[in-house]
Design a protein around this nucleic acid. Sequence first.
RNA 1: GGAGAGGUGACCGAGUGGCCGAAGGUGCAUGACUGGAAAUCAUGUGGGCGGGCAACCGUCCCGCGAGUUCGAAUCUCGCCCUCUCCGCCA
Length: 428
Amino acid sequence: MLDIAFIRQNADVVRAAITNKRIELDLDALLAADKERRETIAKIELKRARKNEIAQLIPKASKDDRPRLIEEGKSVKTELEELEPALTQAQKSFDDLMLRVPSIPRPEVPVGKGEEDNVEIRKVGAPRKFDFPARDHVQLMTLHEMVDWEGPRKFAGARSYALKGMGALLEVAVTRLALDTLVARGLVPVIPPVMVKERAMQGTGFFPLGVEEAYSISADGLYLVGTSEVPLVSLHCDETLDAAQLPIRYAGMSNCFRREAGAHGKDTKGLYRVHQFTKIEQVVFCVPDEAVAEKEHYQLLGNAEAILEKLEIPYRVAIACTGEIGLGQTRKHEVESWMPGRDDGKGAYSETHSCSTLGDFQARRSNIRVRMPDGSLSYPYTLNNTAIASPRILIPLLENHQQEDGSIVLPKALVPYMNGVEVLKPKR
RNA sequence: GGAGAGGUGACCGAGUGGCCGAAGGUGCAUGACUGGAAAUCAUGUGGGCGGGCAACCGUCCCGCGAGUUCGAAUCUCGCCCUCUCCGCCA
């Protein structure tokens, strides 16, 4: 959410952000609703002032004056009752529109429509050249009996799966490796609720635009989160943090649930796009200072890269263009891991991490404030980045480390987490 | 799920219809006192929204939402949350 005063004074900037982020929103409707709302407030407050005045006069008034005042009180009350619905309505449409106003992309974010307009920043590690026909993760996982593809589809539907055997152990291993890496770097591990109220989804910017993407538990009015960013940020909703306690850095671990509405037929093969997965997510609250946020952002990015390096997976980093960044994000870097089996075996870099700065967008929506050293109140900035998401990360892990006979040589850093197993041998 | 208790400012806690944005205390800030500190004394000490360059003014907020009333922290109804006991249970 943006400050309405900022929107009024910088309508052009906001308009550009709406266009560039490809958001559907009529800014003029918002400005009109704002005007309407303020004018109505002015009218109503005048009446309320009179109402309060009368109420104070009555106990002091003489017996003769009393009936007259009570009568006036009654009529003011009636007048107020006539005015108030207009305010409620104006406020409601104002609020609805405000929730759809995007944050302003930072200057370094390239303007663009889609993925093809993202700008690569660097490549780390070279894609491996195979001197044998490389298998994709579906073949490898089948060979190793790491996953049950068929069973779950009978009782849980499309895009469901069950990791088993070494597949299950690998997920535990990579998540623990990621978590340990973050803890060593000072993040506080958190296992938060994954069922949350609407306000958390709204507070973090996923609602109202993303309602279709979330599973809802209607009996209890709850939603399953698509990332632990939602509960982690919400942990501090309605709080006033002290600047001295910032930055707060969390490493959340949770299952994530996504309906993948609108992705029908896309990435249906394998474990790239699934409804339920496990993710370690980094979330940071910092003081509202661009330089500080900048530092935190690159630190989060660095953490993710460190994990990929431990897993010996080649990757590249790109900055996402305006059309690819979310409503609240002011800047997003994507880390794309090399997946040899993608693109019909030609291999491709594909997203495994996403590192975002949101400015005070989420803090405003979630009512999280910070008391600055000078005593003033402000909104903290929030940032987040994936540390690891599985099973997606298993795709590059298996595909990059496969041998001709189908065995997998595990990266050294992972071996302790696999109880000393260095090579996974195919079962078939 | 059943029975009961409770939700007031940073915290504790008073307040059962007008003089309550809210006593008192604690904490905090500033000043006085002190060599310095403690203690003491004095003063100050919430937020949202609207208006205003500002000083400031108005309005709203005593868990949330409706209602009664000229007037609600105080009365009524619904909801949420916390705690205790019982039941159930990984």
